[in-house]
């Protein structure tokens, strides 16, 4: 059964023409998104500052309630 499913996908991908070009674009896109943008530019702000949910919550409360300018 698993082999059948595997072959179904394999044959499908191998018979692609325009699809191959599209998969290259998808690959480049995912690489840019996850290997460059996510790692170097889009850290989770709270997770990068705090280890646990309590500290994250305290920080956000402090941010939300400290409105004196």
């Amino acid at each position: 059964m698993l082999k059948k499913i595997f072959n179904f996908y394999k044959e499908g991908f191998l018979s692609m023409k325009t699809g191959k070009k599209l998969w290259i674009i998808i690959g480049i896109k995912l690489f840019i998104m996850f290997a460059i943008l996510k790692i170097f530019f889009f850290n989770d702000f709270l997770s990068s500052k705090f280890d646990n949910d309590k500290d994250k919550g305290d920080y956000v409360i402090e941010q939300l309630t400290n409105i004196n300018k």
Binding site: L37, K38, L46, L64
Partner: peptide
Amino acid sequence: EFEFGTNWSNYSWF
């Protein structure tokens, strides 16, 4: 979703 976590963290948490 990346932007929620990075640029809008107060919102994401809230």
